[in-house]
Design a protein around this nucleic acid. Structure first.
Lengths: 341, 341
DNA sequence: GCTGCTTACGCAATCGTTTGCACTCCAACC
DNA sequence: GGTTGGAGTGCAAACGATTGCGTAAGCAGC
């Protein structure tokens, strides 16, 4: 029913090949022919069938992104939308679309990726939330399918990746708290199988050590990237006989949970507890009190990931060194000395 | 290079047709043959080329979504991620993927949609942020391409759509404020070309009228779905000789801007100004004070939109009546009588 | 007038599937 | 023993493009 290249060719009195060459601006077509063909295309409202194109060109101008397991929970965190925002901004500027596929369970994630990769539906893939032993990375690396990792891989260091220096970032956050005079500093971590959890924990421990302080295992708790985790961590910490006076939270959303819990219990921030988070979500400055946070440049990460991947897809041989997006500490009220101090 | 259906056929000693029929579970294939073919497929690591499949089946098991103009700004609002969350949850459960395309300007939006539609890249399209005179709706409706609108259309009422009763929602919000004793109630609206702005405004005006109050045009301002708009609106209102005592904000994010501005100027909420927003973002309860909001069930909207669209794509003849997702008012501190009253 | 080079285009194969139709068996029936 | 009929497969066309190669026309050069 829709108009094909053959319809155009017939009406223009040329062969389909010629039309095809007009579309791809092949210089070997005379100007008159090209003009005529172009006119007919307009007239007929012709648009190339991208699927057919893909079949022969083996290319789709589409990037794929796999939504990590509980796609449901994922978006609760602004991190995700922010990184997608960056990806889409660059990709669309480069003429690429973004295909999102979700797997609901672990195995389904691999299935989802197999669908995209083997089904030739995408030219490259962006991987998120790299786990310490990630089957997706292995899958793609083995097939040498173009992909870029947001985060980093331990088993496959020689892989395109965009990341922060999370060790240093956590170091900076902790150091800042120490500089405020805190000596009892807790850490609310994320899922232990995520590399980012491990890295930030490492920076936290290192900062303490460098300051001659000791990381008390009692002051480290693990959770998810969810408010509830922060809430739980808060109630754990505040019930400790010897409470920390400051907290580093692995994510602002977790910090929000802490704040909510504290206010419910009547504690004041930063007087009773100072806190700094990660990601500097757009709402962090609206929290009560405004939340200090490490800005890791999420948008930039997404943007750069798309850039890197598209370069790789085009075989412009990207650098295999991980790309590190700089972070910066944004100090707000939640980690400053209390006004009445 | 990758293994095709022909490789499988050759190795199994059958024809490609047979392999294809095995894949689609055609009952006319004998069990032995099917088993053998399946074994070989595993052995060879065969995965069907979805592109080739799409070419002949004219179907892609993919839903498209067009990112409205300033894709950059868009995601700042949790509304977007939340609706996508709902879409992806349902779509992936039904075996559909989601393709996001962005246009940066008005014309590019139409181009983007043309690419998806005429390029046969998607089976259906989800449209967001319907404007009062939306070229995309016209484009799709004219081609009778399956699509569902999140929101509603004035020119094309006979179109699949998922929406709230925004008039009623705004009515409820305003009515709640009136019930608290407010008589001077302002409204911070959104872009006037969006239908949602118009609808909520209408409900606001109607609630006032029903209460015997008059909507003073001075107390209505327009803006974007951005914090800055709320901030500006706040400073406008608070400089009025005769200030409103309460505000309805078209979106929580706008309300956040108002809150921020008020706190900077030393005003207290709800004592100096009560406020209720829309969307009940996950962070609304974390605001200072916790923000009253109309919960419009964003996730549910996305979920239902996917459901409706997929049904339409499969020609299960969805209802053409707009589907209305119920809203509910969530009252929090920002619109309650001040504690010291 | 023949050769040889360009220019501008067409032919036909190809990409990896699906599917309508035809065909071959073989058992069952009269 | 010929006819039917169904079960199980294969042939080949089709989906809508791209592209290597071939070729006709035109012109220059000798």
């Amino acid at each position: 029913m829709p108009v094909t290249i053959i319809d155009v060719a017939r009406k223009a009195g040329v062969s389909p090949s010629t039309v095809s060459r007009v579309i791809s601006n092949n210089p070997r077509i005379s100007k008159e022919t090209a003009d005529k063909v172009r006119r007919i295309m307009k007239e007929l409202g012709y648009h190339p069938n991208e699927i057919a194109k893909s079949l022969v060109s083996k290319t789709t101008r589409t990037l794929g992104i796999i939504l990590p397991r509980p796609a449901d929970e994922l978006f609760q965190n602004l991190f995700f939308s922010e990184v997608i925002r960056g990806i889409v901004a660059h990709a669309s500027r480069s003429g690429y679309d973004l295909l999102m596929a979700a797997g609901t369970s672990g195995q389904e994630e691999v299935d989802a990726i197999a669908r995209l990769v083997n089904g030739r539906r995408v030219d490259g893939i962006i991987l998120l939330y790299s786990r310490r032993d990630d089957p997706l990375i292995a899958y793609l690396a083995e097939r040498s399918f173009p992909f870029v990792l947001i985060g980093r891989s331990e088993q496959y260091p020689q892989v395109l990746s965009v990341d922060n220096d999370n060790v240093q970032a956590a170091y900076d956050a902790t150091r800042h708290l120490i500089a405020q005079g805190h000596e009892r500093i807790g850490f609310v971590s994320g899922p232990p199988n995520l590399i980012v959890s491990k890295d930030r924990m490492e920076g936290y421990v290192k900062a303490l050590a460098d300051a001659g302080l000791q990381a008390d295992p009692e002051w480290i708790v693990e959770g998810e990237f969810l408010q509830e985790s922060g809430y739980r961590a808060m109630s754990y910490f505040m019930n400790l006989p010897k409470r920390p006076t400051a907290l580093v939270a692995i994510d602002d959303i977790v910090a929000f949970g802490v704040l909510r819990g504290l206010s419910e219990l009547g504690f004041r921030v930063p007087r009773d507890l100072s806190i700094v988070g990660f990601n500097n979500l757009s709402l962090s400055e609206l929290a009560t009190p405004p939340l200090s946070s490490i800005d890791i440049g999420i948008y930039q990460i997404g943007y750069t990931a798309s850039q890197t991947l598209i370069r790789a897809v085009r075989e412009e041989s990207g650098q295999l060194q991980p790309i590190i997006i700089p972070h910066k500490l944004v100090v707000r009220e939640s980690s400053l000395p209390p006004a009445d101090a």
